[in-house]
Design a protein around this nucleic acid. Structure first.
Length: 318
DNA sequence: AATGCGTGGGA
DNA sequence: TTCCCAAGCAT
C-alpha cells in the first residue's frame, strides 16, 4: 500500500495535476482546497489528548491506537495513563505476564487486544531492539496491527505521509466527496485513491491533515446527528448540498448481545479480573447458569489464552 | 468475505 | 427503553 501511495504521489507531482475522480472544487491551484479550513478548525477545536502531545513517545501512541480500536476516547484515557505509568516502554510490558496485561486492560472490551499488545511488545524487544519500529511494513507485521493501526503509528508517531483510513475519515470523505451518508462496510479501492489524492505531500502537513480529518469526524461529522453548523467545510459538502439523502445501502452490521457467547465470555473475564487468586468453578457458574454455553466459552477463552485452568475446579488469568 | 470478538454511554 | 455505535483485527 505504501509503495502504491508513493507511486500515486510521484505521478501527481510529475504531471502537476490532481487527476482522479474527485470533484474539481477539491483543488485550488493544485492544492487540496479542504486543507486550510480543516487545519484551522483543528487548531481551534482539537482535544488535548495525551498521545497527541509533542512529548508523547511512539509507545504511547501505539498503546493508544490499540486501545482505541472500537473503544471511545473517554474510556481509553484513564487506562492509557495507567498503562504508560506502569509500563513506560515495550520492554516493561514484555517482562510482565499476559494475565497482568489483561487485568490492567480492565473493561475496555475485546481483551484479546491486550494479549496482542503484549505480544507486539515482546516482538519489539525481540526484533527491534525494544524500539517501536517506524516503517509501515515493520509495524504491519506486529500482532494486532492492521492497515489502520500501522498507518496511524507511522503518521502520528513518526510523521510519515501515509493515508490514514479510519471510520471517521471514511465517513467524512464519503459525505464530502461522494454525497452519501455512510461508506461501505469495507474499505474500497476508490476510498484509497481519494485518500491518496487528498494527502498533502509534505509529511508533517500530511500527518496534521489526517489527525484533523479524524477529529472532525469524531466531533462534528458524527455518525448520528452531525453538527454541520460547526463544520468548516459545510459549504463544500456533497451530502449537505444534496439535501442529506438518507442511507440506502446494504443493511449495516449490528451486533447481537443478549445471550451471546461474547456476553458470556465477558462475564467470565470480569470474574477472573476481579480476583488475584484462582477462582472456583462455582463462582463462574454463578454468573452464567447455562452449563453448555458456559463450558463452550471457557473452552474458547482457554483457546484464546485469555484464561488458564489451574486445577480441575479452578480458573485464573494467564 | 463474512463473522466473531466487550463494553458502556448517548440519542 | 431500545438502539446504535466507538481511532479494527484476525480468521
Amino acid at each position: 500500500m505504501s509503495a502504491v501511495g508513493a507511486a500515486v504521489r510521484a505521478i501527481r507531482a510529475h504531471d502537476g495535476s490532481r487527476c482522479g475522480e474527485l470533484p474539481p472544487w477539491c483543488w485550488d491551484g493544485g492544492v487540496n482546497a479542504l486543507l486550510d479550513p480543516i487545519l484551522r478548525w483543528y487548531d481551534a477545536h482539537a482535544r488535548d489528548l495525551p498521545w497527541r502531545r509533542p512529548e508523547a513517545s511512539a509507545w504511547s501512541v501505539m498503546v493508544s491506537e490499540f486501545m482505541l480500536q472500537q473503544t471511545p476516547v473517554a474510556r481509553v484515557l484513564p487506562v492509557h495513563a495507567a498503562w504508560l505509568e506502569r509500563w513506560p516502554s515495550p520492554a516493561d510490558l514484555a517482562a510482565e505476564t499476559t494475565g497482568e496485561a489483561v487485568r490492567l486492560w480492565g473493561r475496555l472490551g475485546y481483551p484479546r487486544r491486550a494479549l496482542r499488545l503484549h505480544a507486539a511488545a515482546t516482538a519489539i524487544v525481540a526484533d527491534h531492539d525494544g524500539e517501536v519500529p517506524s516503517s509501515y511494513d515493520a509495524l504491519r507485521e506486529l500482532p494486532g496491527v492492521g492497515d489502520y493501526t500501522a498507518s496511524a503509528i507511522a503518521a502520528f508517531a513518526f510523521g510519515q505521509a501515509l493515508p490514514v483510513l479510519d471510520t471517521n475519515v471514511r465517513r467524512v470523505h464519503q459525505r464530502v466527496l461522494r454525497g452519501t451518508e455512510f461508506p461501505s462496510d469495507s474499505v474500497r479501492a476508490h476510498e484509497r485513491r481519494d485518500a491518496e489524492q487528498l494527502l498533502p505531500d509534505d509529511p508533517a502537513t500530511a500527518a496534521s491533515w489526517s489527525v484533523a480529518v479524524m477529529e472532525l469526524g469524531a466531533l462534528v461529522c458524527t455518525a448520528r446527528t452531525p453538527a454541520c453548523e460547526e463544520c468548516p467545510i459545510a459549504g463544500q459538502c456533497s451530502w449537505r448540498a444534496a439535501g442529506y439523502p438518507a442511507y440506502d445501502g446494504p443493511p449495516r452490521r449490528g451486533q447481537a448481545w443478549d445471550g451471546t457467547d461474547r456476553q458470556c465470555r465477558g462475564r467470565i473475564m470480569a470474574v477472573l479480573r476481579g480476583s488475584d487468586e484462582p477462582v472456583h468453578a462455582t463462582r463462574i457458574e454463578a454468573v452464567w447458569p447455562d452449563a453448555e454455553q458456559r463450558e463452550r466459552c471457557l473452552a474458547s477463552l482457554t483457546h484464546d489464552r485469555l484464561v488458564v485452568q489451574v486445577s480441575p475446579t479452578t480458573w485464573a488469568l494467564p
